[in-house]
Structure formats: C-alpha cells, structure tokens
Computed example of a mutant assay.
Amino acid sequence: MPSLDGRRKTKRRGGFVSKTEAQTALGTVLEYERTGIVTDDKQTVAAYLTDWLRDKSLALKPTTAALYRDYVTKDLIPGLGTVRLDALNHHHVMMFIGDQLDRGRGKTTLRRCVATLSSALTDAVRQRRLPHNPARYAVVPRPPKYEPACWSPIEAARFLRYCHNQDDPLADLFEVVIGTGLRKGEALALHWDDISLTDHVAFIRYTLTNVNNTKPVLTAPKTKSSRAWIGLSDRVVAALRNQLIRQPGREFVFSRRDGKPLRPEYVLHHFHQLAATAGLPKTRVHDLRHFAATTMLNSNVPLAVISRAMRHSNLATTTDVYGHLLRHVAHDAADVIANALDTADAARRVEGDHTAIT
C-alpha cells in the first residue's frame, strides 16, 4: 500500500474462513486503492464518530454541537458503534431505525439522529474514506406535520390586554414578539444598542438559546438572512419605551433583576400560564411568529414583503410554511385570467359593432 515516504507497505490481514473470502477482501482493498479511497479496516463506527464529532464541533453553534453530541454518544455509538466503518451498510442503518422505533423513539428525534449519522458519513465520503453513504437512502417514517395553532387578532389583542391589566413584567416582551414576528430567542437577545426608537428600527444581531436546556448562550440568528434590520410599529415602540422605563440602564432589553437575559424556558412557562388564565387556546411562543405572518397574509400583504419581514432565507420558505393560507392569492390569479378574457371579448364585440355600422 502507498505511504507518505513513497515506499509501499505490505498490508496483512488474516482470519478468513475460506480462500474465496480472502480474495473478496483483497479485491475490495485493491478497488479502494484504485479509486483513491483510504480506509482503515480496523476503525469502528464509534471511533470514527468520536473523531468526527470533535472536529465538527469546531464549526457548529454550541446548541447544535450539544444535540449532535447527544445523538452520537447516547444513540449512534450504542447502536452501531461496534460495526467496522468500512463494513457499515444500509441494512445496519435500517436495523438501527427499526430498533429505535420498537423502543418507542419519537419520529422527529429519530429523523434528526439519522440525519446526524448521514452528515457524518457524507463527510467520510468527501474525505475518500468511504465509497458511498450507507445512511443516505435510509427511510425514517415522517412525523405528522405540525399545524400552528394561531390565535386570531381578537384573541391576541385579548391576551395583550390581559397582560397589561395584570401589569405583568413580560407584557412588553409579548407586545414586541407579536408586533414584529421575532423568534423567542431573538427577542430575548435584543440589546438596546441595536434599537433606534426614533427611527422605528431594530437590528437582529443575536439569538438566545439554551445548551442542554441549562446554559443560555448568545449565538448568531438562525440563518444568514435572519441577521437583518426590522421595522417597528408605533405600538411596538411604545412597548419598548415602557420597558426602558421599567428596566433602565440595562444592556438587554428584557432581563432579570441581575441584568442577565431571561431564560427561554421561564418565558415559555410564564406565557402558558398567562394564556391559560386569560382563557385562551394553548399555543407556543413561536406560534406568535406565525400569527404575525398569517395576519399579514389575511390582509393581502404581498408574499415577497412578508418573506422579507419574517427574514426567511428565500421566498420558497415562506410559501412552504404559509402556502396553505394563500387562498386569496389563488382567487386573485383566477380573477386576473377571467378579467383578461372578458376584456378581450368586450373589445371584440366593440370591433364587431363598429364593422357592422360601417
């Protein structure tokens, strides 16, 4: 086999039960050498994933790295770790998936776990350590699609009135989230330095997330397009001015008494308590973002404008998430076609009448 010093080294392996099996193994090694694949037939999936996770974590957000670490150490290594990397195949992956489903593993979590494995194996292919990705075509049952339980404008206004009547300390936070469509973490990471109340704008520079649901950290927003300026309505500006009076001299717009940002799980639990006490349907804080988008859609705001306001990566994302709500767009499109045909018919009749007269 080739080596860094230019000298070919002999690779010896034994333990084969027959000459045919040994010749098959030799053929595989020679084929790998011919196609430029460098493999270690002693490396296990566990050893590879451990090395991959160490290197991959350098380029990941802390929260993503923590999720990958859980999937690798708690699921993938216990389930597939003893298999040699170069022997791993589609059947192994499907057996792992079946075993996880039999144990009652959630479909969403399982899909993310297998996606982590596929990402690791794709890197192995790119590094010429595997000829193909055994997890690429693995079939994982899709979980039921989540349908946001959006409040109506009447319900949202009722919730905000209740918060203000109770003089709740998070009333202004919910005004900002509902009035801008910000993600929860983006609202909690707002700094006063990134807001201009005079110009009615704010720059979304960070998002606040929890690593392992315990350690809050500031990271970049969800996507590149999420890091952008947003407009602020008079109502939102009024809420921010009120918050500035409530908590003056703070770095974060919304913070605890010690100046540190609010914990996301506290905001979620407090929101659920307020909604229940106000007699409103249960929903998620993130669904307030969906409320903002659907309210704009129902007011016939152009989809491109909504996409920009929600800071989606592209227009397709907005269509995928909210396309089922675009009934008025379908009607408008059909009406445009009908109006064009009616106009053409009317013009033809006028032309015919003119010809008859002459």
Rank of each mutant, 00 (worst) to 15 (best):
H200S: 10
T198A: 04
I154W: 00
T116A: 05
W151P: 06
A120Y: 05
R161C: 12
R112M: 06
D172V: 02
F159E: 09
R161G: 12
S119Y: 02
E175R: 07
A135F: 14
V139G: 00
V177W: 02
R129T: 03
I204S: 08
D123C: 03
L117W: 04
I204M: 10
A135V: 11
H191G: 08
L170V: 07
E186L: 12
D168G: 04
R128W: 02
P144R: 02
V177N: 06
L117F: 06
L197F: 04
A187D: 12
N133Q: 04
R183Q: 07
E147T: 07
V139P: 01
D123F: 02
P148Q: 03
P134S: 01
C113P: 02
T116S: 08
F203E: 08
P153R: 04
L173D: 09
R158F: 00
L208F: 14
P153L: 03
T209V: 15
H200T: 01
E155N: 08
L188W: 11
L173Q: 09
L121F: 11
D194N: 11
V140E: 05
V176L: 14
F159K: 02
Y162R: 08
P134V: 01
Y137E: 13
C113N: 09
A202H: 10
P134C: 02
W192S: 00
A115C: 04
R142I: 00
T198C: 00
L173F: 01
S152H: 02
A115E: 12
Y162G: 08
P143M: 00
V139T: 06
C113T: 15
A189N: 13
P144M: 00
A189P: 13
A138P: 04
K184D: 07
P134H: 06
C150L: 10
E147L: 07
Y137L: 12
R205H: 14
T122L: 06
L190V: 03
L197M: 12
Y162I: 05
A138I: 01
K145H: 03
F203M: 06
T209G: 15
T207S: 15
Y206Q: 15
T209M: 14
D168S: 08
R126A: 11
S118R: 14
H164P: 07
P143L: 01
N133V: 04
D193E: 15
V139A: 03
E186Y: 14
R183E: 09
I154D: 07
I195V: 14
L130F: 03
D123A: 10
S196A: 02
F174Q: 12
Y206A: 11
D172M: 09
A202P: 12
P169L: 00
V114D: 09
A149F: 00
P143C: 01
W192G: 00
L130P: 05
R112I: 06
K184V: 10
F159G: 05
R136Q: 15
I195T: 08
V201I: 15
G179C: 05
E155H: 06
G179H: 05
V201C: 11
R112D: 05
V125E: 11
S118N: 09
C163P: 05
I178E: 08
P148K: 06
R126W: 04
V114G: 08
D123M: 10
T122E: 13
P144L: 01
N133R: 02
I195A: 04
G185W: 04
P134D: 08
F174E: 10
N133T: 01
T209Q: 15
